[in-house]
Design a protein around this nucleic acid. Structure first.
Length: 265
DNA sequence: CGATTATGATTAA
DNA sequence: TAATCCTAATCGC
């Protein structure tokens, strides 16, 4: 289940594993049969990730646009691939690697102009160089909404999802219901800095890890699933052990620590 | 075996 | 806000 780090990771992995030779494309499920046929036997020219949106250019004039949504997955297989497991919307068979796409909220061929329109509607992407942080700061300052809602608004900052927003606000000691406009410059700067830092870590690891190994008392070994996060979907705070509170903000459930995230700035 | 849930977003109301 | 879409794992009966 994907936030921006997974999409950026996929863009790189798909490019490095499929780039070069012609790709065999099919739609085992059948729902993307025409699109797959249009891609079939073409070479992958480039991939690009903007927030949670993935674009793959097969040099056909149209761009493959994939949005995984809440439940979509790209599963990596060896080539030749085994029979599809479950419902596979799109299968891309490369020389040594096959990618199976299931459950996307979007899988379509679009024009370059349509891609431009999607990208133009997205806010600063912490995983892209040259992200427009000044505009993002300005949108925060002008917003009348809680910071927890603004962090999920992809037109303001692109790529953060429900886990990162909860963990980032925890790390910054900010309650999710604070008005975005009430953040000081220093608070905003720290929020952005941590966002870039953590999402880069997530891209490298392929999963979201926000805790410091030192803090949880293990300096070696693979981190257990329960140790990766401070507050998200937890009952007790990973840092202080106190009870975690929940609220609905920005249309989604959020978890926060009333102790580590004080009510006032 | 049905209900529930999940790191998301769009459309309708 | 609520309904809707997409899939698979997990949970309760």
């Amino acid at each position: 289940m994907p936030e921006g780090h997974i999409i950026h990771r996929l863009a790189r992995e798909i490019r490095s594993t499929l780039g070069g030779a012609p790709v065999l494309a099919s739609s085992p499920q059948g729902r993307f049969a025409d699109g797959a046929a249009a891609i079939d036997r073409h070479r992958l020219v480039r991939t690009d990730a903007w927030g949670k949106y993935l674009f793959c250019d097969f040099g056909t004039g149209e761009i493959l646009h994939v949005h995984l949504g809440l439940i979509g997955k790209f599963r990596r297989r060896a080539t030749p691939p085994p029979d599809p497991v479950g419902v596979v919307r799109l299968r891309l068979v490369g020389q040594g690697t096959t990618w199976d796409l299931s459950g996307p909220t979007r899988c379509e061929l679009i024009t370059p102009e349509e891609q431009d329109r999607i990208v133009a509607g997205l806010g600063a992407d912490p995983l892209r160089r040259g992200a427009d942080v000044a505009t993002m700061r300005d949108r925060f300052a002008r917003s009348g909404r809680p910071v927890g809602a603004v962090l999920l608004d992809q037109s303001i900052v692109a790529g953060i999802g429900n886990v990162y927003r909860a963990e980032l606000l925890f790390l910054c000691g900010i309650r999710p219901d604070r008005a975005a406009a009430s953040l000081t410059d220093d608070e905003f700067d720290e929020l952005w800095r941590r966002t870039v830092e953590l999402m880069r870590v997530g891209t490298r690891l392929g999963r979201i890890v926000t805790t410091e190994p030192d803090e949880i008392g293990r300096s070696r070994g693979r981190m257990g699933d329960e140790d990766r996060l401070y507050v998200y979907h937890r009952e007790h705070c990973r840092r202080c052990g106190g009870p975690i509170a929940t609220a609905e903000i920005g249309g989604r459930q959020i978890w926060y620590c009333p102790t580590c995230q004080p009510a006032t700035a």
